[in-house]
């Protein structure tokens, strides 16, 4: 922990953060208008997102440049590591809110609704359920009629996706190993495989979603089962998307010859994030898909 003697890198004043804040504001305002069917909303969203994307490129680009110029000593490196670690912790707590909601409805809210014979007599509860006024649940893999839905089974695409993500955890570790041995070829190839697995995961999930909407009667509006299913897997999918973009960035950097066996926080930060996404998926697979 001890501070290096006067060599901690203090960046010059930077325009990126405040402009990024403008982007966040425009994106948020656009999203609000969009949700309320005001046509300017989607244009504002595109504008705000564009500001954020461009500024992220500028900001990260500057930090990468500084890193490659050898500006960061070990203490700065440790600040980055702590920053990423605690950021991932906050992400874990974000998912915890949705997992908490899932456990609460399954263990408490739905059984209480079923027990209560005054509110909705005849409602039997159970899981999956779309609630007393929602669509009726039928067996997995059977064809739903009107106002029916079938729940998502665990042993098709979800199991395959579990295998894919676990494998990608292995491939990213192989890439890390290559980096530590200073074997650039191993680093680049295994990173590429990791990215390919990430994209495959996302493609499978997109197929799964479209199948749910078109064939299974399962949508975001399918009561509390649909809500927890799509919000949990959807936010996870969003994080996989971000993780894949991050992987692509470090892959391109690896090709350009960035990172050394001793100095590669950028790589490790992304790898941590990727493992985090992996672990969340295991929770999803068990509690959302499997134990129904």
């Amino acid at each position: 922990m001890s501070a290096a003697k006067g060599s901690y890198y203090l960046p010059e004043p930077s325009p990126w953060p405040v402009i990024t804040s403008v982007g966040v504001f425009v994106l948020a305002l656009g999203f609000i208008l969009f949700m309320n069917s005001i046509s300017a909303g989607s244009w504002l969203m595109i504008g705000g997102a564009a500001i954020i994307v461009i500024l992220s490129a500028k900001w990260f680009g500057q930090v990468i440049g500084e890193s490659e110029a050898g500006t960061f000593n070990d203490q700065v490196d440790m600040s980055f590591r702590m920053g990423m670690g605690w950021f991932i912790f906050s992400e874990v707590m974000f998912f915890a809110a949705f997992f908490g909601a899932l456990f609460y409805v399954r263990q408490l809210a739905v059984p209480w609704l079923a027990e209560n014979e005054l509110l909705w007599p005849g409602y039997e509860g159970g899981w999956p359920t779309a609630g007393p006024k929602g669509a009726e649940v039928i067996a997995a893999d059977s064809q739903p009629g009107p106002n029916q839905f079938s729940p998502m089974g665990a042993w098709g695409i979800p199991a395959l996706n579990t295998l894919i993500l676990l494998t990608s955890g292995f491939t990213v570790t192989m890439a890390h190993w290559g980096l530590k041995k200073d074997n650039r070829g191993q680093l680049v190839v295994w990173l590429f495989l990791t990215i390919a697995l990430g994209i495959t995961f996302l493609a499978f999930q997109a197929y799964e979603y479209s199948h749910a909407y078109t064939q299974m009667g399962l949508t975001l509006g399918t009561g509390v089962y649909g809500a927890t299913f799509f919000m949990l897997t959807g936010f996870h999918g969003f994080h996989v998307t971000m993780g894949t973009i991050m992987l692509i960035v470090i892959w391109l950097r690896s090709i350009k010859g960035h990172f050394t066996p001793k100095h590669h926080f950028g790589f490790e930060g992304v790898a941590w994030y990727w493992h985090f996404v992996d672990v969340v998926w295991l929770g999803l697979f068990v509690f959302v898909y499997w134990l129904v």
Binding site: V105, A109, P132, G226, A227
Partner: peptide
């Protein structure tokens, strides 16, 4: 977006 987290009719609370 049509979710029912807090709507008992959809099994929420």
């Amino acid at each position: 977006f049509g979710t029912h987290f807090f709507d008992a009719a959809g099994g929420g609370d």
